[in-house]
Nucleic acid binder design. Structure first.
Length: 692
RNA sequence: GGGGCCAUAGCUCAAUCGGUUAGAGCAGCGAACUCAUAAUUCGUUGGUUGCAGGUUCGAGUCCUGCUGGCCCUACCA
């Protein structure tokens, strides 16, 4: 047992979207690490918050015709609900839009000012006069300035057709994607932090080998810092633009009215603000956690936000006199079946969608079994997910209790721990190694090691075959001994897996009437305690459940929008297009592969066991029908659908779902849930006609 | 364009400093068993380590080039 004080953070989720299974890699990883530290007896505290500031929130709020505060409040609630459901236990969950954060930002800002790191420069930026906002590059579109290309409707930074890069001001006929207005170039004064003054400190901190994974240190050296010992020498760090002119949703800079801190300035300070809230609530001293050499600070982040956390953030902390991170743990991204998560393929799975179908512990275990100390991407292979959960968790580990408990249920474990041939002691001897794997975030090795213990225990019970001995009345005591051993081995495994599967550890505690609260609970066998009646601890899962989840996650591609028309009286925002980016160009040949047909809904039934599905029977005329399961339950009543015309994919490969065979797909737009909008067709169309 | 990382069995991943016959899990195949949630146990098939060179007594590992993938960054490198 050790006695460290450890402050842990996970990256702050942005208040502009729901939590999905990609986010969960990080929160589950961090939660496992924190639970491990707590189980070891360390003083660990886990802080997070919603990241709430920036232009994207304002745009969303405007589109939804409500205040930014309403948007972020609702999102915070949704985030916390998802996290709680997945067993992610924060000691405090705050918001960057809090009074604590504003104060800390001011304190750190003052220190940076006093250190002479701030300078001012004029910046030219495109401004949307209609929306009244400065525009980031991605909110501007226009014709490519390359005379040989002239591709229309290109984004503000580079042309997707010819690859040419340019500034948004160079675009021919630029238009704001927010309002369609022609943006004007405006000059505004921005504040910059001269990071170059911290170069030698950042060299030392990042290259020490203590705080960062080696790949990360290499990347920083190659890309930003350079190598003073090489021929090219050190590179100059560029000034960091940390202000945005009004209007901006964020904190106004106290000594620079009309300017606001850029979201990436106040976001990491949110770690501290969240700590502060917790300290105030718990009677803790904030400086003990952020200004003490006795506290280790560990950040868990994804590889995309590396440089904010490994250059700017240590620089800010150093300048303001706070503790530096002991370690920044960086992980890769989630891929599903080897590919990026995709909305159209249904692999962009929201946490809430997952919860409609599967237990959170399956995902916790699966991620744990895949996560190593490196920052490579991890792959959620859906078939492997099913196999691994069933074979490791249910067939192997839980099965130990399942096959032994009932022989002693209602009785007690042996008064003395029987001779097990050294199995229990051998597992104790491996405890330090397993702990070291957890400590190094090598959960894949930890779970593999633990699984081997379960293999050995299964082998033991096979050899001793208590089910045979049970038939001989004079062997009752031996049966009890065998089961006492197996249940103790099971409990030992439950202790080792507690950080990953806290619920299983609880169940093991209930089964044997001895709660698990410390790593060292694995080191002494239980004797004489009563054994409760065995109840199933986890259910096997089927590929059909996973497929249904994927089907429900499919978001049909929205119809392509024409280029924003300057004269358009509409002010359609960019949210829909941004929520689901345009896929790559396809040919007419690709398009004709999809056989879209007009169909009439001739029957529509609720699927009571399904959360989102309706069962439709579509007629293509002439007796040709299709049985289709459509995820539109929240948006349509079955009785309202009967008789109407829809557009369906008539040649879609039939798919076996949990509730039956689905032989097609009904076309609809929208993000899902109640916001699903079926395609309609003008009067005159008849079922069976093809859509071209 | 620049920087960094990666490519190993059907799938997902290991392999210490360059060191013996490249190992696991899952899937597959064969058998045993029947207490257990179609669980378990034993046995077994499967590799030109992306391609082409090089260094070395010895290369999955080091070097060069190529191909493919990912992240970051960009008329600043």
């Amino acid at each position: 047992m050790t006695d460290r004080r450890i402050l842990v953070t996970a990256a702050l989720p942005y208040a502009n979207g729901q939590i999905h299974i990609g986010h969960l890699v990080e929160y589950i990883q961090t939660d496992i690490w924190v639970r491990f530290q707590k189980l070891r007896g360390n003083r660990a505290a886990f802080f997070c918050a919603d990241d709430t500031h920036g232009t994207a929130i304002s745009i969303r709020a405007r589109a939804e015709r409500r205040s930014e505060e309403e948007v972020i409040a609702e999102m915070s609630e949704a985030h916390q609900r998802d996290f709680a459901a997945f067993g992610i236990e924060f000691d405090n969950y705050g918001s960057t839009n809090s009074s604590e954060n504003r104060e800390l930002c001011g304190e750190i800002w003052k220190a940076i000012r006093d250190a002479g790191l701030v300078k001012e420069k004029d910046i030219e930026q495109l401004f949307d006069p209609e929306a009244g906002l400065f525009l980031a590059d991605r909110f501007v579109r226009g014709t490519c300035p390359n005379a040989d290309c002239n591709a229309p409707n290109q984004p503000g930074d580079n042309c997707s057709k010819c690859g040419r890069t340019y500034s948004p001001a160079e675009l021919v006929d630029p238009k704001s994607t927010l309002s369609g207005a022609v943006p004007e170039v405006r000059t505004a004064r921005h504040l910059f932090i001269e990071l170059r003054q911290l170069h030698s400190f950042l060299d030392e901190w990042s290259q020490s080998g203590k705080h960062l994974q080696p790949e990360v240190a290499n990347n920083l050296r190659g890309q930003f810092l350079g190598d003073p010992d090489s021929e090219e020498g050190a590179k100059e760090l560029r000034d960091w633009d940390i202000s945005r002119p009004a209007p901006y949703f964020g904190f106004e800079i106290p000594d620079s009215p009309g300017n606001y801190w850029y979201v990436w300035f106040d976001a990491p300070i949110g770690y501290m603000a969240s700590t502060k809230q917790w300290c105030d609530r718990m009677g803790e001293n904030f400086d003990d956690w952020w200004k003490s050499d006795d506290t280790e600070i560990h950040h868990f982040i994804g590889k995309d936000i590396t440089y904010f956390h490994t250059l700017f953030w240590p620089g800010m902390l150093k300048t303001a006199g706070f503790s530096l991170p002991e370690k920044v743990h960086i992980h890769g991204f989630l891929r599903v079946d080897g590919e990026k998560m995709s909305k159209s393929q249904g692999t962009f799975i929201m946490a809430s969608t997952y919860l409609n179908h599967l237990e959170p512990d399956y995902l916790r275990y699966f991620y744990a079994s895949k996560l190593g100390p490196g920052l490579g991407d991890i792959d959620l292979n859906l078939e492997e997910f099913v196999n691994r959960v069933n074979s490791h968790l249910v067939g192997n580990i839980v099965n130990l209790a399942s096959r032994s408990a009932k022989f002693v249920s209602g009785g007690t474990l042996s008064e003395e721990y029987p001779d097990d041939g050294g199995l229990f002691a051998a597992a104790v001897a491996r405890a330090d190694q397993i702990a070291e794997f957890y400590e190094q975030c090598d959960f894949a090795s930890a779970t593999l090691e633990i699984l081997q213990l379960a293999d050995e225990a299964n082998r033991f019970i096979n050899d001793r075959a208590p089910w045979k001995l049970k038939k001989e009345p004079d062997k009752a005591e031996e049966v009890r001994q065998i089961c006492s051993i197996v249940l103790n081995l099971f409990r030992q495994i439950a202790v080792f897996l507690q950080p990953v599967l806290p619920r299983l550890a609880e169940q093991a505690g209930e089964l044997l009437n001895a709660p698990i609260s410390n790593w060292d609970d694995a080191k002494t066998p239980l004797t004489g305690t009563p054994v409760t009646e065995f109840k199933h601890m986890m259910q096997r899962i089927t590929k059909a459940q996973v497929d249904t989840m994927v089907d429900e996650s499919v978001v049909d591609e929205p119809a392509e929008e024409g280029a924003a028309d300057n004269e358009s009286p509409w002010s359609d925002g960019p949210e829909a297009l941004e929520a689901e980016l345009m896929t790559e160009e396809c040919t007419i040949d690709d398009f004709v592969k999809v056989d879209l047909r007009v169909a009439r809904v001739i029957e529509a039934k609720d699927v009571p066991e399904a959360n989102k599905l309706l069962n439709l029977t579509l007629s293509l005329g002439g007796g040709e029908t299709r049985n289709v399961f459509a995820g539109i339950k929240a948006a349509y009543k079955p009785e309202d659908l009967v008789g109407r015309l829809v557009v369906c994919v008539a040649n879609l490969k039939p798919r076996q779902m949990k509730f039956g065979l689905s032989e097609g797909m009904v076309c609809a737009a929208g993000p899902g849930k109640a916001d699903v909008f079926l395609l309609d067709i003008d009067d005159g169309a008849v079922p069976g006609q093809r859509v071209h």
